[in-house]
């Protein structure tokens, strides 16, 4: 989130060099998250939180009820919010790699693969997708605030430490936490891919 804000600020203030570093940082995190979505702890896995329309509606119906539907990890609606944000952020960083600035002085690292005009169009989409991201991150944060203030569920702590207080009668599904050692190969591979993009001579 800090990098997202920083990317916006550096773009607005013509600090394209920092903007690129910020984008590389975001891309590294995204690639790691994709890896963790396959190899990570159970609540992080895509197979765990990507649900069909039926469970989304069932969950949504209970959302405003007194007890609400218990859930661990991303709930059926939040799961899709995560997917949308991941896809949009990936799209945004990939567009950024090909984007060309208005003066042609500081194209993205893959600028050589596109013409000036194409690169300018991509830069334009890079601006549009940012607006979409504002909407969906806003929605995501608003939902978290709703849980915190209305439903008294702290999803932020749950995200960071992986634990959550639940009522005793709620059905608890076993969670499996993968050792954090497993994160290391993901971090290394993600960083290596981004370093190759940033430093490669294309």
């Amino acid at each position: 989130m800090a990098l997202f804000g920083f990317s916006w600020w550096t773009a607005e203030n013509d600090h394209l060099d920092w903007h690129k570093l910020s984008g590389y940082g975001i891309l590294t995190l995204l690639l790691f998250r994709v890896y963790w979505g396959v190899a990570g702890s159970s609540t992080s896995r895509f197979t765990d939180f990507v649900r069909g329309p039926r469970s989304i509606f069932a969950y949504g119906a209970k959302l405003f009820g007194r007890s609400g539907a218990p859930s661990f990890g991303h709930n059926p609606m939040g799961g899709w919010s995560v997917i949308v944000l991941l896809v949009l952020l990936l799209l945004q960083t990939v567009l950024g790699l090909f984007a060309v600035d208005v003066d042609g002085l500081d194209p993205g690292p893959f600028g050589n693969f596109v013409s000036f005009d194409t690169g300018r169009k991509i830069a334009h989409w890079h601006g549009k997708v940012f607006n979409l991201l504002l909407i969906f991150t806003g929605l995501h944060i608003a939902a978290i605030a709703f849980y915190l203030l209305v439903r008294r569920e702290n999803l932020i702590t749950a995200m960071i430490v992986g634990t959550k207080r639940v009522a005793i009668h709620e059905a608890v599904r076993p969670l499996r936490f993968v050792s954090l050692w497993w994160a290391i190969p993901g971090i290394i591979v993600a960083a290596a891919i981004v370093a190759w993009i940033a430093l490669g001579r294309f």
Partner: peptide, 18 residues
């Protein structure tokens, strides 16, 4: 100005490719 941008990008591209 767009053509100027094109020329600039072409030189940047060569500098980047080495």
């Amino acid at each position: 100005f767009k053509d100027l941008g094109k020329q600039a990008k072409a030189i940047v591209g060569q500098l980047k490719s080495g």
